[in-house]
């Protein structure tokens, strides 16, 4: 993947970086929000880390340009649900301690 990114950045500098930057936030979204079903089994620190990663993702999605307005709207909503659920799970954990 990195080699391909490097080749792309040489051949098509602007395009290559944009394409991979786009993949970057989606991959991160999939990784972070693909774990909600295990949330209640995570430790407090793991949940805090997931919430922090959600918070870091938000401005990256917000930055999508107007041609991706729908994508921005959909993923901000999905991110909110996922972040809120981790916060809910964290509250449950703290309450149990």
């Amino acid at each position: 993947m990195l080699v391909l990114q490097f080749v792309c950045s040489l051949v098509l500098p602007g395009l290559g970086n944009t394409a991979f930057a786009s993949d970057d936030w989606k991959n991160e979204f999939n990784t972070v929000c693909g774990q909600t079903q295990n949330a209640l089994a995570f430790s407090v620190d793991e949940l805090k880390d997931l919430i922090a990663r959600c918070d870091e993702l938000k401005p990256r999605i917000k930055k999508l340009d107007d041609s991706q307005a729908t994508e921005r709207k959909v993923f901000l909503q999905r991110l909110k649900m996922c972040r809120d659920f981790y916060a809910f799970a964290l509250g449950t954990k703290v309450d149990q301690q």
Partner: peptide, 11 residues
């Protein structure tokens, strides 16, 4: 799933 109900509907 989980996040459909928590915390939006059941806080």
């Amino acid at each position: 799933g989980c996040e459909l109900c928590h915390p939006e509907i059941f806080l």
